[in-house]
């Protein structure tokens, strides 16, 4: 049963991914739509990540340790080219705020 779940979830992943790549020239999207689709990755990443940061247990609560962690990570990414630094800065900020008295 578990393996059937994996196989069906795998199909539900590979089919959307392969869809237009496999259909290729037979199905074309209009150029305007293609230009619009350039925004898909930024939109999808933000749609996944923003609720993770601003929502705590189903409630909109922007002032939480996650926001501090994310802010530190983004600042590190903008100021440095070191790929590990955002992860270190983010985790340190997250835990610093959690362990602060009253935090």
């Amino acid at each position: 049963m578990l393996w059937l779940t994996f196989i069906l979830a795998g199909l539900a992943t590979t089919l959307p991914r392969a869809s237009f790549i496999v259909l290729g020239g037979r199905v074309r999207l209009p150029p305007t739509l293609q230009r619009a689709l350039r925004y898909a990755p930024a939109a999808a990443l933000a749609a996944i990540v923003v609720p993770d940061v601003l929502v705590v247990a189903g409630d909109f609560a922007p002032l939480n340790p996650n926001l501090a962690g994310v802010s530190a990570a983004v600042a590190a990414a903008l100021l440095s080219r070191n790929p590990w630094l955002p992860f270190i800065a983010g985790m340190v900020a997250l835990h610093a705020l959690r362990w602060l008295p009253g935090g």
């Binding site: 990443l45 990540v49 993770d52 940061v53 962690g69 985790m91 997250l94």
Partner: peptide, 11 residues
């Protein structure tokens, strides 16, 4: 939380 940071680094 590192997963959240990873997604942000792509963004």
């Amino acid at each position: 939380f590192m997963a959240t940071i990873a997604l942000l680094m792509l963004l």
